[in-house]
Design a protein around this nucleic acid. Structure first.
Lengths: 336, 336
DNA sequence: CGGCCGAGGTATAACGTTGTATCACGTGGC
DNA sequence: GCCACGTGATACAACGTTATACCTCGGCCG
């Protein structure tokens, strides 16, 4: 055999028509037990597996879900992916993951390719510079879409976070501990979530009458957090507490303190955002705004399933709370 | 418009036949500049995007590549994914990632779904218990496959590591520093790479006449490494150095030492495997067996592209070296 | 002026599957 | 002995593309 086995290969092997084979495989129609066995044996024999494209083309069904996010290397995202996959695989869908690396051009290519292969739906963490043409395309193709974190269009389902409120909680906690100079660390993207977090941070500062906000942008990674912390200690030694754009930045900031011979929760208190698995494991364990990534992934999956079940329903927009988890990187400022 | 725009929609809008639209889009055949412009305008107008399934079905072409690995949450894998994607996207392929979570059943489902959607090829890090039926299927479907790390069949292209030699280098280094009791930490899977590493470790011990190997299996994660290190310090306090099954385990082991008030490179020297980005960032920075994950990913992609270019060529098997990168978690044992 | 040729476009048959309509064939009732 | 009927299997048309063969028409050469 030189080629991929197809329906007709099986049909020939079993001595029946292709229609019969199809019925057996799909469990539809009326087939006698003996032909049924004959067909199944033939399927095994030639190692047949249906061509999903042809099947999908004919039947209009589609059980493939695309998951496009902006940074796979971040463990928070990896945990979200797990949640999404587990839930959707239970519903007999296949999830394939694409990483846009927060690059709008790459994201555009990915989305186009995804639509071209006609997925059944899309869970999407939009990158910073997503362009209107891509959005138009998604709308025109009538693809069920759930966006996460960054809302790009009213007509897509969306799950977001109450970023400003979360940051308020973080700042409040630091103020209660006695901190007066509190900086914000991390992020470079102009995306909405970061802006909301910074706004929440600034509003909380204002509420406590703590002066002007101090924002140090940096790459959302440990390396970025590390570098930013070193700079902060040099340029703004009066700062005794920071809130970070994500746990990776916060953990990196902690590394920066260690490298200077200082300790998180000592010279500088640190609060993260996300609650990745490493946050609880670090020494000292990281105080952070927790959003349970695995459960969140499952939640996103449920949203998409609901949309698939009723494509005509009105778009659902939802915002989740992040709760402050107190661990060991926050403490009263050192006396001086 | 109630439906997804298709070729005939565009054709109607442009006042030409579907064949002409197809030719314009594909750049084949002879078309006058004016009809060409007319068609392109119509494509924009209706937001048309071709149905890749139908196109692939008809043309037999396929530009989708599946990437199946066993643990996406490990940053090493995430970096490999980046390398693979970048290279394949440059060659105009779409890469979609599936995570088997080292579960043979899930892996089997993923692979079947992948074949069903008729990818153009597969890069695969096989899970522990991959079954023969799945292998038969892959072979019968004549899918170009490159396996990584764990070789499961002679007839697939394969890229592996010289695990035993690498472990030999690690043990040699520790012995030179003066260590006599060296343990192996991590891994639970019966997969070949781990067995080779343990064999290399045991052989090196024997070569230096250091007595029986001491292997502590644990989950390949920071949490696993942490727990294993705590156990090691209790049960085998005479051990002064460990080699780990991966950087996550090694970094977890370092956390375990910190938690006991001890330091890596002090009470216990630690060597990792992989050289993830965090290894260089940790304090102290992790000595590890490095395999440059991003470049490795690109290499895997090249292998697959070569296979796609010449499906008939004999299978290529290749093993790469891991080099020992000396950082701060290895030092002579403390005097006692 | 007829035939030839090339440029520009179209009709049509696939690709591998599924769903519907249809058909062959006993079997049982009257 | 004939018709109605249910059972089991098949023929055939679609799904949205692409590739090939074909058609038409004007211009140009012999």
């Amino acid at each position: 055999m030189a080629h991929r086995p197809k329906l007709s290969t099986v049909a020939a092997a079993a001595g029946v028509s292709t229609a019969t084979v199809s019925q057996v495989l799909r469990g539809t129609g009326r087939i006698s037990p003996q032909t049924r066995d004959k067909v199944l044996a033939a399927v095994q024999e030639v190692n047949y597996l249906p061509d999903g494209r042809a099947a999908a083309l004919r039947s209009g069904e589609n059980r493939e879900i695309g998951l496009v996010l902006h940074h796979l290397a971040n463990p928070f995202n990896a945990e979200v992916v797990s949640g999404v996959s587990d839930r959707l695989e239970r519903a007999d869908h296949l999830v394939s993951v694409l990483d846009s690396r927060d690059d709008a051009a790459r994201e555009g290519r990915n989305l186009r390719a995804l639509i071209a292969s006609m997925r059944g739906g899309l869970i999407w963490v939009p990158a910073s510079g997503t362009d209107a043409a891509t959005l138009d395309l998604l709308v025109a193709q009538r693809l069920p879409v759930v966006t996460f974190l960054h809302r790009v269009a009213e007509r897509f389902d969306h799950v977001g976070l109450r970023n400003a409120a979360a940051l308020g909680r973080a700042v409040d906690h630091l103020v209660e501990l006695g901190h007066r100079r509190i900086a914000y660390l991390g992020g470079t993207s102009p995306r909405a979530p970061r802006a909301e977090r910074i706004a929440g941070y600034a509003a909380a500062l204002a509420a406590h009458d703590l002066g002007a906000p101090l924002v140090l942008p940096c790459e959302d990674s440990k390396a970025g957090g590390l570098a930013a912390m070193l700079e902060l200690r040099n340029a703004h030694p009066e700062v005794t507490a920071i809130v970070c754009n994500g746990d990776m930045v916060a953990l990196g900031a902690c590394l920066g303190l260690h490298r200077r011979g200082e300790t998180p929760g000592g010279e500088v208190s640190v609060i993260g955002f996300d609650d990745v698995a490493d946050a609880a494991l670090a020494t000292p364990a990281l105080t952070t705004l927790s959003i349970a990534p695995y459960e969140l992934g499952q939640h996103l999956a449920e949203r998409l399933l609901a949309r698939l079940a009723d494509p005509a329903a009105a778009p659902v927009h939802q915002d989740l709370d992040a709760s402050l988890v107190l661990r060991d990187t926050t403490a009263p400022p050192l006396p001086r």
